[in-house]
Design a protein around this nucleic acid. Structure first.
Lengths: 116, 116
DNA sequence: TTGGATACCTAAGAGTTTTAGGTATTTTTG
DNA sequence: CAAAAATACCTAAAACTCTTAGGTATCCAA
């Protein structure tokens, strides 16, 4: 149960949105949360996630801070004010794209909220 | 006015859906129709279109036939029965993905149909 | 004690699209 | 009427993003 190559171009948006909603999160946690929220439909691979997080950090959209749990180091990410602006732009752009595709492909979406 | 890299992975779906709805169309016509239907928001580039049409033909999703207008050759494409099955699958997959993203990003969409 | 989950990471490859060309005919416009 | 713009086809290199496939190491449960 995965929705394939459509995810392309939405990864940054998903990460930023999660960070905006949930405060600080670490990489592995993000993959698990997305998996759980989408009932295994979207599975972010670590090979895609970590480079993207590093990029977002370099761009100033998120900030990282490490925390040591036992002997293990966790890297927590927080969204910056710049990131909050970006995420709203990206979500709006996505919604606009959805409406365009809805018209072009002529389909309806669920009214209620539920990731079946 | 374009909605950037989100289009990735939707090109085949858009082409097949247009061919299913409108009968035979030629390449250039497809780019113009999409542009017009989406109010310039989605602009299919020819560098993406032609290779994709050739691929769809090789896969048996569409069939091509040439027609000569004056001294110019036009290549008309028609969707095959196999293509009709494929387009329904692809649109369903896309809608499913949209609903998942709608939940994940928590947004609402327009109720009415209008590519503003 | 060993397998699975947690937790981080990188690099090569694959897939799709953009960019940037090329050719040629037809129509519009100054 | 000449030049520009639109029509109409095409390909190849580059760019971008993600997957695949590794690597390391800790923690917990069977």
């Amino acid at each position: 149960m995965y929705s394939s190559e459509l995810i392309k171009g939405t990864l940054k948006t998903i990460i930023l949105k999660l960070l905006k909603n949930n405060g600080k999160m670490y990489g592995y946690e993000i993959t698990q949360r997305v998996k759980e929220l989408t009932n295994n439909k979207i599975q972010i691979t670590e090979g895609a996630l970590y480079p993207t997080l590093h990029l977002l950090e370099k761009e100033g959209e998120v900030e990282a801070e490490t925390e040591t749990i036992g002997k293990r180091v966790r890297k927590y990410y927080t969204i910056t004010p710049k990131g909050k602006v970006t995420v709203d732009l990206k979500v709006n752009e996505f919604v606009d794209f959805m409406n365009t595709m809805k018209f072009l492909l002529d389909f309806e979406l669920d009214v209620g909220h539920a990731a079946k």
